[in-house]
Amino acid sequence: MMDGRINARALAAVAAAAAAAVALAGCGASAQASSAGTSSAGTGAEVPLVVYSAQGYDSDVTKAFSAATGIPVKLVDDSTGPLLTKVQAEKNNPQWGLLWVDGDTAFAALDQQGMLAPYTPSAALTAAGQQLGPSDHSYVPVSTTVMAAVIYNAARTSTVPASYDDLATAPYKGKVGMNDPSQSGPTFPFVAGMMNQLGGQSNGMAAGEAYFSKLKSNGLHVYPTNGDTLHALETGQIDYGIIQSSAAAGEVLKAKKSATFDPKVAYLPKATLLPGVIGIDKKAPAEVQAEARQFVDYVLSPAGQKVMQSADPHGDSLYWPIVPGVQAPAALPAMPDYQRIDPAFWGPLEGQINTWFDSAIK
């Protein structure tokens, strides 16, 4: 387990500047597929790179990448849970070339199944970013958020939790909501993080199950994704939401504060570090893998980071960078104290833990 703070970053120049595109793709949006770019410029590639992504800026990034390289991209955007289910269903005949979602636990599990092609990007990462990458280079971290931020409606309550245990006590009864880890990719690392924090790898599952059972007994509400939990907060169904830091920061930025709604954010000890990660399909044709490697380098380039930080200003763009010289958005606080869980241990347990959560807590 590693605690610390992420500092500001700088990057050795990688890719040519690209025109940012339009049309944001929501992190929790329903599945959609679109083509970006043509084969008339750059490499002249005829085979499209199929990108499975749950990032709010993915449409803009894929279009900017195509504009910069001439590589056509077919984007399939959905929530993380359905995308991971799709990847597993296609295990023997993958339809994707590149997967881009938040949370390294899922990638560690895919790596253990031999599904990822290793790649070491040409770009430099900060010291903190380098520590997030696996020793076999099977996937590449490209950003960080934390899970969870506790967002609360200060217009309805003046009680602010100081610990996760507080959320299971009487003042919070029936007032707390969180996402379903089977649907919301960032939420499984939070659940695993609580287990890790409460009992470590030896007793974490039992301790975590006891904790979430206490939350349920205290009236916990479970919603599919960040957006649904935020809607419940906005409409007064709950007063506290356990969500991803980027979604919480975005809600504070865009909220129309009133006498009945005034969102504020608290970070409890300790948040779980949540890397944004890219993996390449090991079974993809060599040409597609080459395109995917170019995509990784583009994302970590100044041009790619610029699109990432501007395309979803009230959502996924609110991340702490791990690229040297790239500054975190002004709307973000300093990185809160965090823990890093071992993705190789917790990743393979995702199916088991999510099944338990949906049967016992949801």
Rank of each mutant, 00 (worst) to 15 (best):
F107T: 02
F107C: 00
A108M: 04
L110S: 00
Q113S: 00
G114W: 00
L116Y: 01
A117L: 00
P118T: 06
Y119V: 07
Y119C: 08
T120E: 15
T120S: 14
S122Y: 10
A123G: 14
A123H: 14
A124T: 15
T126P: 02
G129D: 11
G129R: 09
L132P: 07
G133I: 07
S135H: 14
S138M: 03
Y139G: 07
Y139C: 03
Y139E: 10
S143K: 09
T144V: 07
T145W: 03
V146E: 01
M147P: 03
M147Y: 03
M147I: 06
A149C: 11
A149E: 13
V150Q: 13
I151Y: 11
I151M: 10
I151R: 07
I151E: 12
Y152V: 08
Y152Q: 11
Y152T: 08
A154H: 08
A155G: 06
R156W: 01
T157P: 04
S158P: 00
T159I: 05
T159Y: 01
V160W: 07
V160R: 01
P161E: 13
S163Q: 15
D165Q: 15
D166L: 12
T169P: 13
T169M: 05
P171A: 05
P171C: 05
P171V: 03
Y172F: 15
Y172D: 12
Y172T: 06
K173D: 10
G174Q: 13
K175Y: 07
K175D: 11
V176A: 07
G177H: 05
G177C: 08
M178P: 13
N179I: 02
N179S: 15
D180W: 05
P181F: 05
P181C: 09
Q183G: 04
G185K: 02
G185S: 02
P186C: 06
T187R: 06
F190N: 10
F190P: 07
F190S: 08
A192H: 08
A192W: 06
M194I: 13
M195Q: 14
M195G: 06
Q197M: 09
Q197R: 07
L198I: 05
L198Q: 14
G199K: 09
G199H: 11
G200N: 08
N203H: 15
N203E: 14
N203S: 15
N203W: 08
G204F: 05
A207M: 08
A207S: 15
A207D: 14
G208E: 06
G208F: 02
G208N: 07
E209D: 03
